[in-house]
């Protein structure tokens, strides 16, 4: 890993937000899923997106690495920039964007291949590791950073689908960080896991914050409170309120936020 690279990134991050969303509207066919979202996401922080289901938080997350491109009926308007560059710029290759903005999904989705091949998939695609030794080193360091190395180092050749749910999710995180992205998007990464596995992942997220900018969608307010520095509350496709996590949960400004965090709806 190129430590120099991380340093420069960190410096840049201090100056301005990593990701800036301005007037983002998303439509699925006729219906509007997101209405005029304005959000800044700071570097090397964990930003949590919360809200009742169907509020558009996952849709917004998928806008950040253009995963919505895959859905035919989906249309995105507005501007999202990554370090000042419009990611919906027509000349931009979504492949490159996704190499810089990784993603972890709700259900662990390892490829039906060996653990090793799962991790090596990204580096091989992008030609990041030259040579077998370097690739092995990348795999090892990714697994270490995902806290999975000790558990799987003896069975790198066994299929990734044979791991437990929590291990699979950490494998997916390791797979995401193997291409050394700047941002990691997490879409309810713990919703399919038991409490112990969840705790491990939350711990991991906190560690990863040092090197990555993390955006996490969660339906659990406790989780948001535990892992995030900033929290954004979505409701019915609108961004209702965003702020420091502590502040948002103790003294929300908006009625709706108040209602949601006190459990009146959601």
């Amino acid at each position: 890993m190129d430590m120099q690279n991380f340093k420069t990134r960190e410096k840049a991050a201090m100056a301005e937000p990593k990701i800036i969303a301005r007037d983002v509207n998303v439509y699925y066919g006729q219906s509007q899923a997101l209405k005029s979202i304005e959000l800044d996401i700071a570097a090397n922080e964990v930003t949590a997106l919360i809200g009742p289901s169907g509020c558009g938080k996952s849709t917004f997350l998928r806008c950040i690495n253009r995963m919505n491109d895959v859905i035919e009926s989906c249309r995105v308007e507005g501007r999202i920039t990554l370090e000042g560059i419009d990611i919906y710029n027509s000349g931009l290759d979504p492949v490159l964007l996704r190499a810089r903005v990784g993603m972890v999904f709700q259900k662990p989705n390892p490829f039906p291949k060996s653990i090793y091949d799962n991790i090596a998939y990204g580096p091989r695609l992008h030609g990041i590791a030259s040579g077998k030794d370097e690739l092995e080193a990348t795999v090892e360091s990714s697994l270490r950073r995902a806290g999975l190395w000790e558990e799987v180092k003896d069975r790198l050749d066994s299929p990734g689908t044979g791991l437990s749910g929590g291990q699979q999710q950490r494998l997916c995180i390791a797979r995401a960080i193997a291409v050394n992205p700047e941002v990691i998007l997490m879409d309810e990464p713990c919703s399919a896991l038991d409490p112990i596995a969840t705790a491990k992942i939350e711990e991991l997220i906190d560690e990863l914050r040092e090197n990555f900018t993390i955006v996490i969608v969660t339906h659990s307010m406790q989780q948001a409170a535990r892992v995030s520095q900033k929290t954004a509350f979505f409701h019915l496709g609108e961004l209702v309120e965003v702020g420091e996590t502590d502040k948002l949960f103790t003294s929300p400004e908006d009625q709706r936020t108040q209602g949601y965090i006190t459990g009146r709806f959601g």
């Binding site: 492949v95 996704r98 190499a99 990784g102 989705n109 390892p110 490829f111 039906p112 695609l125 797979r175």
Partner: peptide, 18 residues
């Protein structure tokens, strides 16, 4: 083949053919 596998691959920055 579940959509989640495609998503995983796209999210890694793979092209369609990859």
């Amino acid at each position: 083949v579940p959509q989640s596998l495609r998503d995983a691959s796209y999210a890694m920055g793979a092209t369609k053919s990859e």
